[in-house]
Amino acid sequence: MTRIITSLSEISAQYDALFVDLWGCVHNGVSALPDAVAALKDYRASGGKVVLVTNSPRPRAGVQKQLVAFGVPDDSWDTIATSGDSARSAMFRGVVGEKVWHIGYPDDERFFEPIGVVQNPVNVRAVPLEEAEGIVCTGPRDPLADPDDMRPEFLMAKQRGLKLLCANPDIVVDRGEQREWCAGALAQLYTDMGGESLYFGKPHPPIYDLARRRLSALGTDVPDNRILAIGDGVLTDIAGAMGEDIDSLFISGGLAAAETKTNSDPDPDALKDYLKREMSNPTYTIGFLR
């Protein structure tokens, strides 16, 4: 059974590194969450390393620019691992072919910029669905539209045997007070229709391998039992941590605030019922990162 805590400092001395989710934990899609920033600063001041592990389809540099815009200071983290970087590496290795049908926002085209870590990358280019060898999904065209609107195009893609590369496994996020669909909702639909979806963000192993490499690049070799994963998604952050056999801290005031009846702290009974329904077992739970 998860242990409810009221501050990161209660448990932080047990860990040398944090794998921290961004959306819903450090910012709300509009601005930084001050208590979370302060907690991460204090942790770093004690000698700990903070790896921001995000299912953003953006490259690391793009996420860093976004953090500046949201007011998340550079001294609250050490390095960043994005599902976008993990997925881009796979894309340029040719896992969905050279000619791809892209689903996403217009400014996601930076996803297709050359990446230096892949030797002999394939020449990936976006084409119409009728000409595609595979699909690259960085997000929905309209984050407020019903993912089911994609069903006719997905039926054609499935019939042609196209694989879908999902750059962000998240189903939904909350931008301020507005809930939006993510690429993971489209990938889930495609899979439910019988198509094949390839995932590279949480809870899947590739992004954790990337996070460990980014942590090691800081000159710090940290064993898994000294890493704590923090996030508000039981199906992504917590499931991924459980799969990697690392401890986790569930932020109940994010995506599951209503289900866990979290104001400042979660209601213990509501939290227990929610985790039982989701078959999730985070090591710790806190209302908000602080």
Rank of each mutant, 00 (worst) to 15 (best):
Y199H: 11
G219Y: 10
D148S: 14
V68W: 04
G253L: 06
S86A: 15
D192Y: 09
L255I: 13
T191N: 11
L275A: 07
T138V: 00
L249C: 13
D170G: 01
G84N: 08
P169H: 07
M150P: 01
E153S: 09
V63T: 10
A32S: 14
A229K: 08
R212Y: 13
W77T: 03
R93F: 00
V68I: 13
Y274P: 05
H204F: 15
V222F: 06
L8D: 05
R214D: 03
W101F: 15
A217D: 15
A87L: 03
A256M: 15
N168S: 14
R290F: 05
N55T: 02
A211D: 06
E98A: 12
A38V: 06
L129G: 02
F92I: 02
N168T: 01
D148Y: 11
S264K: 11
V63N: 06
S12F: 06
F200G: 05
P152S: 05
L40W: 09
I115G: 05
V63F: 04
Y105H: 10
D209L: 13
T54Q: 02
E113C: 02
R110I: 00
G116P: 08
C182I: 01
C25F: 04
I246S: 04
K272V: 10
Q14N: 15
G231S: 09
E109D: 12
T262E: 05
K163S: 03
G24W: 04
G47N: 08
D78E: 07
L67F: 09
V124T: 10
P205D: 10
Q188H: 14
R141K: 11
P266R: 06
P140H: 00
R214H: 11
A241T: 10
E113S: 10
G48M: 07
G24F: 07
I238W: 07
K276A: 15
N55I: 02
V124K: 00
E278L: 11
V136L: 07
G184S: 08
I103Y: 00
E133T: 06
I115A: 02
K99N: 08
I115P: 07
N55H: 07
G254E: 07
W181F: 15
S280L: 03
I227H: 06
L289M: 11
V53F: 01
L271P: 03
G231F: 11
I115W: 12
G104F: 02
G176R: 10
V26E: 04
K99W: 04
P34F: 08
Y208K: 05
I246F: 01
R110L: 01
S12I: 13
A45K: 14
V37C: 14
Y284G: 04
G134V: 05
A257G: 05
M242E: 15
A13E: 13
R290G: 14
E259V: 01
A183V: 03
S12V: 10
Y274H: 12
F19V: 06
I207H: 08
L271I: 04
R125A: 03
C25A: 14
D221Q: 15
Q14K: 13
G287C: 03
N123Y: 03
R60Y: 01
V124G: 00
E278I: 03
A211Q: 10
E130T: 12
C166I: 12
P152N: 03
G71H: 08
D232R: 08
K272Q: 09
F288N: 10
L22Y: 04
